[in-house]
Design a protein around this nucleic acid. Structure first.
Lengths: 210, 210
DNA sequence: AACTGTGAAGTTTTTCACAGCC
DNA sequence: GGCTGTGAAAAACTTCACAGTT
């Protein structure tokens, strides 16, 4: 079967594809050229049947008796996830977190490039952070529009997150990665994902005896 | 029904509790004292039935016709998640990310306090980062043991993550929040959670037209 | 012999819908 | 009238197990 229309594939499956991609690239770095659902599953602690079924949504990528050509599978997954091109991304918030994000080298080779760093504070505007000069939130809308940027990372205080998100959506952003520890509401056509380390820590402590 | 033994409650339910807790605290900050599964669900984009069912695993926390006393529910959830005390946490890796984590103010009032910051690089050791002096990984094991620390945040390069995780487990750590973009293997009795912004970005781009 | 891709079976998770209470 | 807590039903997800290919 060839690639389905996106809407028919469960979101939970989509969420695992980046993990497969990440693990495959690592196998590649280790010099491997072929792998199997079993080997991959062992690394990821996911059953081999799960991996085969997930991948089968997008077509038969493997060879019976042999397994998967890693390079081929990496290409296919990058295609499916639309990271066979480079997405321009903006960071909003030039506090410690925004600065750390702006310095992070790990976006480059996985499909993302930071294009701008914004902040609202007059003290921060104009400051040089790595390769970026902090720009005013005031000009954010215009820049995002002009450059057709579709993705933003939100690293502002929780109180400001909804307001900034509204502005980003208004400017045409279609995906927001929110680092602020608060839920924000966006239109249905805008993707939102959350990163909040504390929720992960609290998830772990449930299982830790006191 | 009163609190069950942890093992009988689905992990997926546990994963939502921190989100409920976060949203409830925000409602509290907004001055509310009572809420309903419907109101909470609207904020979180989770169905009200789901919220009621999740909470019912731990006892009847609400009142029919009225809803939930926010303060009471916050206390119960903190109890269930074991964050009614403060957990000491160490950070390993004093690069940009480790530094940002060490500066982050948001752990304090949600159950966690950073106790130490470690790095392996001689240039970094001794450096003052906020309120911490970077300590050598060499002395990590001894310090974790002595202070009975159970949780670590890993912010080292992917290549070093497995090795450091092994040392942490050896030292008695029972939960690791791994920021390195790589899967690591730990014994079954050790909790592990991952934070990798790129996997979230790639999840979003699947849904974004090119 | 090793491995994929996949229907069918099994399990888990979510939603429904309503009795019971405030 | 508004809301919870919960069995029962429905939906979603995972695993099984094996035919088919290399």
């Amino acid at each position: 079967m060839s690639a389905n229309s996106p809407s028919t594939i469960p979101d939970i499956v989509i969420g695992r594809l980046p993990l497969y991609l990440r693990a495959l690239k690592r196998l590649q770095q280790e010099g491997k050229t072929v792998t199997s659902s079993h080997e991959l599953g062992k690394r990821l602690e996911i059953s081999s049947a799960q991996i085969r079924k997930d991948l089968s949504h997008f077509g038969g990528f493997g060879k019976q008796g042999t397994g998967y050509q890693i390079e081929f599978l990496v290409d296919r997954l990058q295609e499916v996830l639309h990271v066979n091109k480079e997405w321009m991304v903006v960071v909003v918030g030039a506090g410690n977190l925004g600065i750390a994000i702006s310095h992070y080298r790990g976006f480059q080779d996985r499909g993302f490039r930071i294009a701008h760093l914004f902040d609202i504070s007059p003290q921060k505007i104009g400051e040089q952070i790595g390769e970026f000069v902090v720009q005013p939130v005031r000009s954010m809308r215009e820049i995002i529009r002009r450059e057709g940027i579709k993705i933003a990372m939100l690293a502002v205080p929780a109180e400001d997150a909804q307001g900034v998100a509204d502005q980003l959506v208004e400017a045409g952003v279609q995906g927001i990665l929110n680092y602020a520890p608060i839920n924000i509401n966006v239109p249905a056509n805008v993707q939102i994902q959350y990163i909040d380390p504390v929720t992960h820590l609290q998830h772990m402590t449930y299982y830790l005896a006191e």
